[in-house]
Write a protein that binds this DNA or RNA. Structure first.
Lengths: 230, 230
DNA sequence: GCAAAAGTGTTCGTACTACACCCATGG
DNA sequence: CCATGGGTGTAGTACGAACACTTTTGC
């Protein structure tokens, strides 16, 4: 029907992490990179007998030692034909949210370095990866307002002030503490634990936990989570 | 680095149309289809030197004679390795909204038939196209609530009752006419025209038009369009 | 004058906004 | 007793929900 198609299929992973009031993304540097050896998103070519989802998981594990169980498909980049100067490559980008304190990153296989980069200190990346990352950040911001994804970025038990800070940081907005707390608690998907923060300054703060089960029930009932800001 | 990758890249188009109070989708039947010759979404393999976006446009034009200027990327289907039994094929699905009255559909190139199918009378489709369509419908419903996409499906000038009906049909919900009208008009993105409906039953109805410019201004100002229902 | 669809206003309740002070602990 | 963050209540407002009758035309 047509000349033989010669297009490669790759996947890229945008892994966001939150720690100490800052949003980070996981980047790698290839060992045998193209001349300039820019930092890049983890990723690589999909194998013939492997689903796209498995491909991202595998590449991420291989390159950074990070294992993630939930990836969301972000977008497929294939409009710029020369985005990879070597071949025609389209890339299916996936993003994930993790708590960095639970992970041990490690440069593996063909990778030279792995590192968390603060989101507003991103260098020029390989290929169109700056563009991909930009789109991922937009999606993250949007999702934060209508899905309780903040909890994936935090430890199992967390302070309300951390959650609050996470929203401020990602959305780059001030929020009103009292109203934010009321709003979040009103959904009933965040519960107090018996524990208190080990931080020994100021009044001891209760630790909270996210009730995933409750959240799923509410979704079934059609209640939709939404956080707005002034 | 690895064995030669052998994955084909296709695009598929989900073209939604609205007419006479019904939502339709455009399907084709291949001439030399696989045995069963199921109906299918328009689409095909991407050329080596062609962007994904151009590929959907070309395929749609070739197969159905329909020209669309705005496609939105829906999702990339590539987790089911055997979704096409002949080869490993991943498909980047795009969707578009059109006013069918402005189009002349015509089976072209390798296509035997082209037809609008009402959304709740979809037969079993080729490959995983039922799944793709399902996802497209979900996205359409979601988008309808927070973007004024209804206007892409209607003629330039339309009746309020048509708009109202469009929302009811797509969302499969009753809506409250008075509140709906107030809400839509409150955004200021829909204007009265001087014209009246040619329908000669009941009180003559004003025709309205969508003010795209005004909408873009409001977006810049950060106002976000949202329609909720009881 | 009746059938058929278009057009419209008000009340009520809920949910978001804005705002400032007290609390519990460690040093 | 002071410094540090944690924790809370209330009043005003704006927006969505519910609801039914009048208007204009063709036949």
């Amino acid at each position: 029907m047509e000349n033989l198609q010669n297009i490669r299929v790759a996947v890229d992973a945008i892994v966001f992490g939150y720690q100490n009031g800052q949003l980070y993304v996981l980047l790698i540097q290839q060992k045998f990179g193209s001349a300039e050896s820019y930092w890049a998103l983890p990723g690589g070519l999909v194998k013939n007998d492997e689903s796209l989802n498995d491909a991202v998981k595998r590449e991420l594990k291989e390159e950074t030692n990070v294992e993630v169980n939930y990836f969301e498909q972000l977008f497929t980049f294939g409009d710029d034909i020369t985005r990879d100067p070597r071949n025609r490559v389209i890339s299916v980008a996936y993003f994930a949210l993790v708590d960095p304190s639970k992970l041990e990153i490690k440069a593996d296989s063909d990778v030279d370095k792995v590192q968390w980069f603060q989101i507003n200190e991103i260098p020029k990346l390989a290929f169109d990866h700056n563009l991909i990352l930009k789109k991922a950040i937009e999606r993250l911001k949007a999702k934060l307002s209508y899905e309780p994804i903040g909890f994936d970025l935090l430890p199992k038990e967390f302070l309300f002030s951390e959650l609050e800070n996470l929203y401020c940081t990602i959305l780059e907005k001030e929020i009103e503490r009292r109203n934010f707390r009321k709003k979040i608690l009103s959904f009933g998907i965040v519960e107090e634990t018996e524990n208190y923060s080990p931080i020994k300054t100021g009044r001891p703060a209760k630790l909270f936990r996210f009730n995933k089960l409750k959240y799923k029930e509410l979704i079934k009932e059609g209640i939709h989570f939404e956080i707005k800001f002034a």
